[in-house]
């Protein structure tokens, strides 16, 4: 930022100050100089305070030892230890602040920039000696560089070969398949009458109970009839049931808050709000895409099943996700 209008503070050297005993700067200073007087006006008081403080820390540390021996609760342990440390610190600081030379003292500060001569000497040593050594052995230097480069590249191999599998296609599908039964966390299949209107349950495909990516919320919004959340989804919501991926399309948190009055799902992490009736479309907050909907049907025994897996990648976006609808499974 250009500070064209600045008026820097005056940096007047030694602004008008006279010199104390000891004469000009750099002259020897006697220990009797006023700068060596203790800082406190009442050193005995300071000494007393430090003594009391040290004694307090002595007692507190001893109390901490006793408390620890007796397995005392956290607050007793912590307060005895904390008071011990704090009192010890207060005593030391009191000692240093009030009972030591008041100063001020100074020391010279060399400028960091070197003189041209110093630099020339260094560069001379480095370059001239090095030049002889390196230039006559050009091939050696190149070989050394080549070996080092190979090592550098090879050193990256664990990153791509053993740290973890490559994503391959795993971003694009979950364990939901055609016919997967909707299963509760304790492994029971959900039947038609198991959830009341206004109810919500977290479900998984029966072969991936507890799965981080296949977690799905099942909501019942009405007693009878298909719920249609959009074109092409006429049969996805039988008997008032709707199922959506529970993984937020924003940052991947489980969207577990169902506002029953407003038929909205709220993400607890960043408060993205999804409207259930229109297919979990985002209506508020940072989530950019609807929660993918799982198409459902009721089988002949009355159990809820998936017509197919999700028709787009679930969860937050990633570079290879493709267009707004993502790649098909």
């Amino acid at each position: 930022m250009p500070d064209t209008t600045d008026t820097p503070a005056p940096e007047e050297p030694h602004a008008g100050s006279g010199h104390a005993t000891g004469g000009a700067r750099g002259e020897p200073v006697s220990l009797d100089a006023p700068q060596f007087a203790v800082a406190a006006r009442h050193p005995r008081r300071a000494e007393g305070a430090a003594a009391v403080s040290f004694f307090l820390s002595f007692l507190s540390f001893a109390a901490f030892g006793a408390a620890y021996w007796q397995a005392a609760p956290n607050d007793v342990l912590g307060i005895s230890l904390g008071v011990g440390f704090a009192a010890f610190g207060v005593a030391l600081v009191t000692w240093g602040k009030y009972l030591m030379p008041r100063g001020p003292f100074e020391e010279p500060r060399p400028q960091m920039a070197t003189t041209p001569q110093e630099r020339a000497e260094f560069v001379g040593d480095f370059a001239s000696r090095g030049k002889v050594a390196i230039e006559r052995r050009g091939a050696l230097a190149k070989l050394m560089g080549a070996a080092g480069a190979v090592l550098g590249i090879v050193a990256l191999f664990p990153l791509v070969r053993s740290l973890g599998p490559k994503p391959n296609g795993s971003m694009y599908h979950t364990k939901w398949r055609k016919g997967s039964r909707l299963t509760s966390i304790d492994g029971r299949a959900v039947a038609l009458d198991d959830i009341e209107v206004g109810g919500i349950i977290t479900v998984f495909p029966e072969n991936d109970v507890g799965g981080a990516l296949s977690q799905t919320v099942l909501i019942r919004v009405q007693q009878t009839g298909d719920v249609v959340t959009g074109p092409g989804k006429e049969t996805w919501g039988p008997h008032g049931y709707l199922a959506f991926s529970k993984v937020c399309t924003h940052a991947g948190c489980p969207v577990g808050l169902y506002q029953e009055l407003t038929h909205q799902l709220l993400c607890p992490c960043h408060q993205s709000l999804f409207d259930v009736d229109t297919g979990a479309t985002p209506v508020f907050g940072p989530a950019p895409r609807p929660l993918p909907q799982l198409p459902l049907y009721v089988d002949s025994k009355g159990y809820l099943r998936a017509q197919a897996g999700f028709d787009e990648p679930i969860g937050p976006g990633f570079w290879y996700r493709g267009g707004s609808n993502g790649s098909p499974q």
Binding site: V190, D194, G199, I201, Y258, Q259, E260, T262
Partner: peptide
């Protein structure tokens, strides 16, 4: 009110 209801299944 706004709270979902939890059936004996859930």
């Amino acid at each position: 009110g706004n709270m979902p209801r939890f059936s004996t299944f859930t």
